[in-house]
Design a protein around this nucleic acid. Structure first.
Lengths: 217, 217
DNA sequence: GTGGGCATCATCCGATCGGCTACTCCGGTG
DNA sequence: CACCGGAGTAGCCGATCGGATGATGCCCAC
C-alpha cells in the first residue's frame, strides 16, 4: 500500500538460471520507481561476483538454480560475503525441505513464482527493510511443521534411500556401501521410523516428496 | 539467423500461470520486431477465450499450468478451436511423460525455460511456419525412447502404482481395488516389466520420475 | 473371427523383507 | 567420566514378495 520513505531505490540483484524469468522480473520491477535491478546472474559464481560488485540490498533468488549447487547453498555463500544482501527466495516449489534449507541458510523471505506482482513488490520492499516475508502456503507449511518433530535423516540414511530408489535389495546396498546387510537393515528401520512408513516403496515416495532424495529430471 | 520475409509479425499468445514468466516473455518478445504478443492467459479458460478472440499464430504454453488440467489437455482444447494456433510448449521440465503428452496432444514444439532467448525466438518463428521445434535434451529423450518399446502404463496399473507409493502391501492393495491379491501381483509384474525395474521401491521411483504418479507438492 | 491387449484369478515356491533383541565402537556434550 | 546418538554388526523368524506358469472373460482391431 504505502511506499518507502527513502529517496534511494532498493537495489536488487536477480539470481535465476532461466533467462525468461530474469527478463520477467526485470520488466516487472522496472515499473516500480523505488526498485532498481542493478544486476543479474544465472549461476552461483556469477551471482557471487555481481553481489560483490554491486552490494545490492536484496537478492531475488530462484531455488531451483541449475542442477548443481542448490539455492540454499548459494544463499549461504552470498550471505558469507562482506556486507551481505537480504535474500528473498522466489521459487516454483513450496516443498518443506526446500523452504527449510533456504530459511536455515539465512533467507529472510520465501515467495512463489505464481504470486501476483504486487505481492512480489511488497515482498522486496519488506525484505529490504529486513522483514521476514513468507507466502501464505509457505507459512502454512511451517506452522504445520512446527507441531511435528523434525524428521532429521542422517547422511548415511540418505545414501540408503538413494540406493533404495534405484531398486536395490539389502544385499546389493550392503555391497555398494561396503557394510553388512545387517547394517543396511538397521538404517532402513531408522528411516522407516523417521519417515513414518513401514515399507521400502513408501519410504521412496516419502523421501522424494520431502525432497530428501531427487527423482532425476 | 535469418528473419521472416513476411511483413506481418507473428501473433503470439502467452499461456502461463506465472505472472513473472509472462512478463518475462512479453519483455523478451517485445524486443523482436517480427513477434507480437497479442494476449496472455494464466489459466485454461482464459486461454481459450483469448485464442478465440485473437486467433494467434503461435501459443507459447507452460506445461505446469496450475495444479488443475495439465498443459497437454489445454493444448488439446486450444487445437480443437476453429482456426487453431500452433502450440509451442515452453516448460521447466523435460520429463518423458510430459513431452509425450504434449506432443500427442498436438504441440509442434517443446522448449525449456532455461533456453537462451535466441533459441526461443527462432523456435517461435519456426513454430509459426508449422515446423517442429525440439530442445536438444528433449530430442535426445525422444530418440532414446524411440529405440525402446513404449512403456504405456494402463489406468489400472497407475492405480496400483499410487497405492504402492503409499506403501501398501499386496493384500491391502487388493482390498482397496476390490480385486484378488493375484491380480495385484499380476499388475505389479506388468508394471515392473514396463518400467524396467524389479522391485516395488524401484517402481515407485521410476513412476515418479516419469511423472506417471505425482509425489505431492 | 481370430488374434491381441487388458483385467481378472489361482497355485507354487524360493528369496527377500521387516521387526525384534542385543552387542561393539566412536565422537561429542554436559 | 558418564551419557547419548550414529554407525556398524549379528541371528532369528514369520510375513511378504517376486517369478513362473497357466487360465478365463472382454473388447477392439485387422
Amino acid at each position: 500500500m504505502t511506499d518507502t520513505p527513502t529517496g534511494q531505490p532498493v537495489r536488487v540483484v536477480l539470481v535465476d538460471d532461466h533467462p525468461v524469468v530474469r527478463a520477467g522480473l526485470r520488466a516487472l520491477l522496472g515499473g516500480q520507481d523505488d526498485l532498481a535491478v542493478v544486476g543479474e546472474a544465472g549461476d552461483l559464481d556469477t551471482a557471487e561476483r555481481v553481489v560483490r560488485a554491486e552490494h545490492p540490498h536484496v537478492v531475488l533468488m530462484d531455488l531451483s538454480l541449475g542442477d548443481g549447487p542448490g539455492g540454499a547453498e548459494t544463499t549461504a555463500r552470498l550471505l558469507a560475503l562482506p556486507d551481505p544482501p537480504h535474500v528473498l527466495v522466489l521459487t516454483t516449489y513450496d516443498t518443506e525441505a526446500d523452504i527449510l534449507r533456504a530459511l536455515e541458510a539465512g533467507a529472510v523471505g520465501y515467495l512463489l513464482k505464481d504470486a501476483p506482482p504486487e505481492q512480489l513488490f511488497a515482498g522486496i520492499r519488506a525484505t529490504a527493510r529486513g522483514e521476514t516475508v513468507l507466502a501464505a502456503s509457505v507459512a502454512a507449511r511451517l506452522v504445520r511443521r512446527a507441531s511435528s518433530p523434525g524428521p532429521v535423516v542422517t547422511e548415511r540414511e540418505v545414501e540408503v534411500l538413494e540406493l533404495l530408489a534405484r531398486g536395490l535389495g539389502n544385499r546389493e546396498m550392503a555391497r555398494e556401501l561396503f557394510v553388512s546387510e545387517a547394517t543396511v537393515k538397521s538404517h532402513l528401520s531408522h528411516v522407516y521410523a523417521k519417515l513414518g512408513v513401514d515399507t521400502r516403496a513408501g519410504a521412496v515416495a516419502a523421501a522424494i516428496e520431502r525432497r530428501i532424495i531427487r527423482s532425476g529430471g
